[in-house]
Write a protein that binds this DNA or RNA. Structure first.
Length: 256
DNA sequence: ATGGCGCCACATTGGCGA
């Protein structure tokens, strides 16, 4: 089973890219973030014509998450239970015996920002909920745009980024808090190329200069991590015309 | 020190992302 995540930065603009990637990679599930679409405007017909079903939770202009899947999905849930958040950032669904949780973790803007406090509060809520969710669904995958680079290897210039949003110690501690639930970073289960990133700023030719951050992740509960055979970033999508600033990440797991 | 790019909307500039 191939699971994937991609922050598309507007599904309206990136629909051709998504359809091409589905055809080329044939993932069993693709989690999308920053769809930036209200639900009535979701391009369901085009997705279904490509052989996929979709569940989605969106809003105008900002945020918005979706799960595209080749098989039926059940137990769909939007948002973190008990956390009243108008921002559409979480969508969970069960498919093929796996609990797939799609997240768009807040950016945080800067350490002095109210958005940073929201980000840490949000991460606390997510972690609290996932504890019970993993107990309920031992085969759980958490995929999405985390807006956290967990390690120095995940940042093109760790010294310059020290103490900056996306790489600050409290954010990295929150990432370790997710790992403490028993979730494994699928990407680090394997040898990877140097300078492997998932996001590159649109400005200053950052992609061509290979200067990016690894902030999109697939975390797998232990029963799934034990079956994971590959995990990779598809940089080719970032090299296309009119790309998202994020590249897709995928992982292959084997479930009976 | 600032802005660079791209997307969106009560648009032709400002908010936001990362």
């Amino acid at each position: 089973m191939k699971l994937a995540t991609w922050n598309v930065n507007s599904l309206k603009v990136r629909l051709p890219h998504v359809l091409d990637w589905l055809a080329a990679q044939q993932p069993d599930a693709l989690c999308l973030q920053e769809t930036k679409l209200e639900d009535p405007n979701f391009p369901l017909a085009e997705i279904e014509a490509a052989g996929y079903r979709a569940v989605f939770s969106g809003q105008k202009t900002y945020n918005g998450v979706a799960i595209l899947a080749r098989s039926a999905v059940t137990d769909v849930q939007a948002g973190i239970p008990g956390y009243d958040d108008p921002q559409k950032r979480v969508l969970a669904a069960t498919l093929g015996g796996v609990r797939v949780v799609c997240v768009y973790i807040p950016n945080g803007e800067s350490l002095e920002s109210d958005k940073y406090r929201y980000k840490l509060e949000w991460l606390g809520r997510l972690t609290g909920w996932l504890g019970t969710e993993i107990a309920r669904h031992p085969r759980l995958a958490l995929l999405g745009d985390y807006n956290i680079a967990p390690d120095e290897r995940d940042v093109y210039d760790p010294k310059a980024w020290e103490g900056q949003v996306l790489f600050s110690e409290p954010e990295r501690a929150a990432f370790r808090g997710l790992a403490a639930l028993g979730l494994k970073d699928a990407f680090r289960l394997f040898e990877q190329p140097e300078k492997s990133y998932t996001w590159w700023d649109y400005r200053m030719n950052m992609f061509k200069r290979k200067l990016g951050l690894r902030i999109d992740h697939i975390l797998l509960s232990e029963p799934l991590a034990a079956t994971c055979s590959a995990c990779s970033v598809d940089r080719d999508m970032r090299a296309r015309e009119r790309p998202s600033d994020h590249a897709p990440v995928w992982a292959e797991i084997s479930v009976s």
